[in-house]
Design a binder for these strands. Structure first.
Lengths: 152, 152
DNA sequence: ATAAATGCAAAAAATTTGCAGCCGT
DNA sequence: ACGGCTGCAAATTTTTTGCATTTAT
């Protein structure tokens, strides 16, 4: 659940999650609610494996299909960890941000404390100077390193 | 091959590629030379599939192992295109740079014209402020958009 | 000579697909 | 009731592993 307010209201959140699906014309089903709620509940991005483990009742194929539909509707971001499987994070209610990925254990952490995105103001320049591209609508910035556990 | 000089000297290049392997204490084998030379020869990053198709004589497992060893020795960069499989590009002889990826046709272009990496000087700050990470040794920055062909 | 790297084949892991039946609207 | 969604099982695709053989040093 989102740690937005100290008094977390589960019902309000449920409606929020429902709205997310409903607003995209998606049917509000149990498996979808579970996936979205799980994504909301975790601060850091979740891998397919983590989602599967946490929600064993949902069929394997459905997990893929649910995440696909969430990504294509813009509710969820697929993070390119460079690892075997992608990780996913919910977008709504969160600021644009970047990630640090452990190349040994795949741990993902959000980059915190940046006032503003260091790349955002480059987009327009790059759009102009690129030979082959005319539109840039997004970017992703990942840092790779070793987490404290793995660097010992 | 690197298009660095107008008069390209294949032998010189061969030594260059050999040196690359040798300098990391890697045995200079035919499969490794082939992979490195193929990576040098293409301006844009190559996916595992493209490499496999181009070099069918190299065993499947070896391709994975060769790329892994090249990445872990810092000669090759694994780019997270957000597509199904990662792409790889050789680093040596090329400046650190970033990419623009067309989300429709997967075309990849290098970002050109930046004097310096807009992210580099953030690394130390992020290393310090991160809770879970102690070392950051790399990053990747990709812009997503539509190429001129696909945006028409 | 010997330690490392390769190729092959088999195994494991990750993802996709087809389809019958269930469930939201 | 309809169409979209799900679960299951099977099929693909991608990646890893074990081991005998080859190869670079």
């Amino acid at each position: 659940m989102p740690r937005l307010s100290p008094n977390y209201d589960e019902d309000a959140d449920r409606d929020y999650v429902k709205d997310l699906l409903w607003s995209s014309g998606l049917k509000v089903t149990k498996p979808r609610l579970s996936v979205v709620k799980f994504l909301f509940s975790e601060k850091n991005p979740l891998s397919i494996v983590e989602i599967k483990n946490k929600l064993p009742k949902i069929g394997n194929a459905s997990i893929y299909r649910i995440l696909e539909v969430l990504v294509s509707n813009g509710h969820v971001n697929r993070i390119n960890t460079g690892r075997i499987h992608s990780s996913y994070e919910i977008l709504r209610g969160r600021k644009h941000h970047h990630h640090i990925i452990c190349t040994k254990c795949d741990e993902v952490e959000d980059v915190e404390g940046l006032e503003k995105c260091p790349v955002k103001n480059l987009t327009e320049y790059i759009e102009t100077s690129s030979k082959k591209f005319s539109i840039i609508y997004n970017h992703s910035l990942e840092f790779f390193g070793l987490c404290k556990k793995c660097s010992q």
